[in-house]
Amino acid sequence: MIRITRKVEFSASHFYHNPNFSAEENRRVFGKCNNPHGHGHNYTLEVTIAGEPDPATGMVLDLKELKDILQREVMDRMDHRHLNYEVPELAGKIPTCENIAAVIWQLLEPKITRGKLDRVRLYESPNLFADCTAGFASTNGAGKRA
C-alpha cells in the first residue's frame, strides 16, 4: 500500500455564529471569530490517497486527475468565497476547520475512483489543522460532545 498526497491552497472568509446563542454567548464561545464582518484565512489542504500502484502506469491515482478533482470539488466551491454564505454544503454548520474538513471528505470520497481516500488534512493556519481519516462511521459533523 502506498499513500500519495496532493496539496492545494485556497483563501476564504468566514465567521462563527450560532443563531441559537445570545449575542453575549456567541462572543463568549467564539471570541473574535464571532466578528459579524468575518475574517479570512489562507487554507492549505492536503489530500492523501492510499492504494496499490497500477502496474501499467506505476501510479496509485494520476496526480493530474486528483488535481482536477480538487479543482472541481474544492477550489471552485471555496476559493475566494465566504464560507458562511456561498458554500451550500456548509449551510447550517459553523464553518470551523473540523466541519470544513468533514465536508471536503464527503465531497471527495465518492469522486476517488482509484485508490481510497485516506486522509483530508486542512490547515487554517500553520498552527491549527483538522484531520479527517477513514475511521468509524461518519458523524456528518453531528453528535454531542461527551
Binding site: Y16, N18, F21, F30, P95, E98, T139, G141, G143, K144
Partner: peptide, 10 residues
Amino acid sequence: GPVDPATGMI
C-alpha cells in the same frame, strides 16, 4: 471526539 453541532468544534 465528536464535533459539537452548536459550535462546530471538537
